[in-house]
Structure formats: structure tokens, C-alpha cells
Amino acid sequence: MTVHAHDEHHGLGHVLPVSTLAKVLGALVALTVLTVITGKMDLYGFDLAVAMIIATTKAVLVALIFMHLKYDRGFHGFIFLGSLLFVGVFLAYTMTDTAQYQGDIRQFNQQSVAEELLNPLDDEADPGAGSPPGNEGH
């Protein structure tokens, strides 16, 4: 039996030292505090970008260390990144599409609201429609 030089122990997988795990937890908590602070500030339009950069940094730490991807077979990381790539494709095409038809969407929304106001409830004859309604739920 040959033993890998860097392995803490024999056998399967890689054993992470407690100190590494603790440092990652510390970094994750610190980044959470940071994102709450930056979330309360006005970052002149970069709020979302900053929040996403911090979240991605946290995700990378979790994936690389807690999920062992740094020490694991490259193929597992490939699967993980592959899924994110396809999420990116999904998101990019959908966002392009919704941006393209923005005018139509606005128009449709306005029309449907206008129609709703003209014929408050076409399916139920409710005399109270339109006025501040009573509590029909409970």
C-alpha cells in the first residue's frame, strides 16, 4: 500500500484540518456581516453587484473547502461549473427576451388593468366591487 505524501491519513477522500474549517466559518460570518452593512448603504447603483460579489465569494468558499472541491476530482468541479454555466444561459436568454418585449409587456399590463377597472368582475356579479372591499377571506 502506498500512501499519498500529503494525505493526513490513509484511505478515501481528503481529511480537512479543524483549523481550515474554522477559518472558513470565520470568513463566511465576516462576509455575512459585511453584506448586511453594505446592503444598508447607498452604493449608487452598484448595490446588487456588491451583494452578488460577496455572495459569490461565500459560495466559492463553501464549494472549494466545505464541499472539498479544491481537493476533489476535477470532474466534480466540472459538473458544478457546468450546471452554473447552463443557469447562466437560461438567465441570459430569458433576460434578453424580457428586455426585448418590455414595451409590449407594459402595454399589456396597462390594458389588462384598465379592462379590470372598466369591468370590475366579469365572472361574478358583485355589487361591492371597486369600493374598498370587505374581508371576504376570513
Partner: peptide, 22 residues
């Protein structure tokens, strides 16, 4: 544990996306 970390990963994105919109 891998499954549990994934649940954590999802929340890492949900928290700023929902709670921290300035």
C-alpha cells in the same frame, strides 16, 4: 454533508436577493 452545503449555498444567494434590496 454535500447536500446540506448545497442548501446553505442556495440560502447564501437568497438572503441578499430578498432581504437586502436597498
Amino acid at each position: 454533508a454535500l447536500y446540506w452545503h448545497l442548501v446553505d449555498l442556495i440560502w447564501i444567494f437568497l438572503f441578499p436577493l430578498l432581504y437586502l434590496i436597498a
